[in-house]
Amino acid sequence: MNLSEQHREHKISIRGLSDREFFYGHKACPGCGGSLALRLALKVLGERSYAVVPAGCMSAVGFIFPQMAFSCNAIISTFPGTASMLSGIAAGARALGIEDFHAVGFAGDGGTADIGLQALSGAIDRHDKIIYICYDNEAYMNTGVQKSGLTPSGARTTTSPAGKRLRGAITRKKPMFEIVAAHGIDYAATASVGYPLDYLRKLEHARTVDGTSYIHVFAPCPVGWGYETAETIVVAKKAVDCGLWYLAEYAEGRFVLNHNPGEFASIRDYLFGQNRFRHLQDEDVSDIEIQRDAKWARIRREWSD
């Protein structure tokens, strides 16, 4: 079965989603995209989940003794150790004869693309049966909005300030989806909390994969990005619609593009709706557009619809 056939197998509807809450009563900020990504994922994966959350926003808001926000099994890992702890949990549970479980990790962009990349690479190399979810809010939000390896060009953070000489981050966002795909991972996908059905379907697929799954979910942060808390879903949709994020999958050596906008929505509307980009000048926006168009030319050429 190829991916598109498998998609028809996983019929997802919001109505069919579990009423149970596995991540509830936590202290995340209003409008937090990351906590939504966790909440939805655990609804799909269910009570036989071991949730691993490294040091970062989600562990900071979910595990404050004696008030625990997870109603399934959960554990904080070291910052670099999300994937290695997941591997240990999966190996331990298997050795103990425990069946029918999900070892699922939720790491932020820094915990994934920077400090946690080595352990993730090892787990993918071993094809360990784990589900690794990167909730990407494009900076180190828990410590106060510092630049990460997934902060996009031009974004202002507290360590990539917008000044006269430099106008925000000067690095480009690491292509994590392609980095994990280059390992020959069993399943990888990108998603956005702005397109929950697509995200849920990918989670549903990940739970059936006999090997390593990686889902990179775009998860806006109103505090770090500077927009109104009610706008998270709108911002998450706009990122996809203007082509600065994309919805895709990888399995068995093939990339599949799930959503191919005929015409991109306004990139300026997306950028200037957020404080972190408001300092950008026309030439910066053109640079971002050029980067986007080059990426999409390659995607459209090399990935199937």
Binding site: G81, S84, L86, S87, G88, A91, G92, A95, G122, D125
Partner: peptide
């Protein structure tokens, strides 16, 4: 009869042991 994990660093070796121990495994 052990699960033998070829990890990519010592940090991961102990991190994996912590994960396994956290589900009740001897490591």
């Amino acid at each position: 009869k052990s699960e033998y994990l070829h990890v990519e660093s010592e940090h991961s070796a102990l991190s994996a042991c912590i994960g396994a121990s956290a589900v009740g495994a001897r490591t």
